[in-house]
């Protein structure tokens, strides 16, 4: 299973006065087991790129191939791409339309022309995967659900198509901290169960914590591509693009400025905790500096 973008360029309204090239010359491969974070400032082409993954947009240059086959070639069944590469848009709850949660989730599978039993089975598993209760919530109107649950219901509608690659455009936008955490755990769980994930995100802490690969876009081009540790250690470049860096990384930079040898490759919370405990071993309470207690913020 391999989705490959080869020198993909997309120009909107070519030849018109509104001509605008959103992405240029992008080569990218998404394979089994990947958890890729797609980051970049607003307007860098992330959403345009995401829409190329399942053939919603056709590149104006270059090719998109799924397992070696050009998905835009004549005679290629586009439904096959839509099924294998799921795409969850930003604020996906705005696409809900059915009377009940179950019916809404079955929209995708039904479009695939599956049997009723198969559809019911898929709806049930999809609901389980996103943490909705089939019995008590299946017959509810999706519009009666809470914000976080509406979002998960919409995602279930895509998961029910059983894609091997799932692309999500800022899945946690607008959610409160708990709902955000739950949703990220759910995505991580899908990944553990074998779905390759491509996630557009502005949240660098999430990217550092969950992803195995980070792709940075700027002005429509891929400017960085690598493991989160490789990408996030180039903090200065990221900051210059107007992006955040994971907070742990900022802490590390500050500490090293002060001459404390905080490891450069610590980017998420757990790593920072371990590193700090290591550094301050033997300097524990109530050791040598009792007078320092009660610095700012100590309540």
């Amino acid at each position: 299973m391999e989705l490959k973008l080869d020198h993909v360029t997309h120009t909107y309204q070519p030849g018109s006065p509104f001509q605008a090239t959103a992405i240029r010359d992008i080569s990218l491969t998404v394979g089994d087991g990947d958890f890729t974070a797609l980051i970049g400032p607003t307007g860098s082409g992330k959403s345009t790129l995401a829409q190329h993954l399942n053939g919603l947009l056709k590149p104006t240059g270059g090719t998109v191939t799924l397992d070696g086959e050009d998905i835009h070639q004549k005679g290629y069944d586009r439904r096959r791409v839509r099924q294998r590469v799921g795409l969850v848009f930003q604020y996906p709850e705005t696409q809900l339309f059915e009377e009940t949660v179950k019916k809404d989730i079955s929209f995708g599978p039904r479009n695939l022309g599956l049997s009723e039993e198969e559809i019911a089975e898929r709806v049930r598993t999809a609901m389980e995967q996103v943490g909705l209760d089939y019995e008590s919530e299946g017959e509810k109107s999706p519009f009666e659900l809470s914000g976080g649950k509406m979002r998960r219901c919409a995602i279930a509608g895509v998961i029910a198509m059983r894609p091997t690659i799932l692309a999500l455009d800022e899945p946690t936008a607008g959610l409160d901290p708990e709902a955000r955490e739950e949703l990220m755990e759910m995505v991580a769980d899908l990944h553990r169960k074998g779905t390759a994930i491509v996630m557009v995100t502005h949240n660098m802490d999430d990217a550092a914590k969950y992803c195995s690969r980070t792709v940075v876009l700027e002005k429509g081009r891929v400017v960085m591509d690598g493991a989160p540790k490789e990408v996030f250690t180039r903090a200065e470049e990221l900051t210059q693009m107007g992006l955040d860096v994971p907070q742990v990384l900022r802490l590390g930079m500050l500490l090293r400025e002060k001459g404390i040898p905080f490891p450069e490759d610590a980017i998420c919370e757990e790593e920072a905790e371990k590193a700090l405990l290591e550094l301050f071993k033997g300097k524990s309470r109530p050791a040598r500096l009792p007078g320092q207690e009660g610095g700012r913020g100590h309540a």
Partner: peptide, 28 residues
């Protein structure tokens, strides 16, 4: 992060920002 360190008995007060935590760490 600073609360976790406190729980592990590190001599760090509650810090709210990376700057705070770096400052407190430097003192120690």
């Amino acid at each position: 992060l600073s609360m976790k360190l406190r729980k592990e008995n590190a001599d760090i007060p509650l810090c709210l920002t990376a700057e705070d935590l770096a400052r407190e760490a430097e003192k120690r």
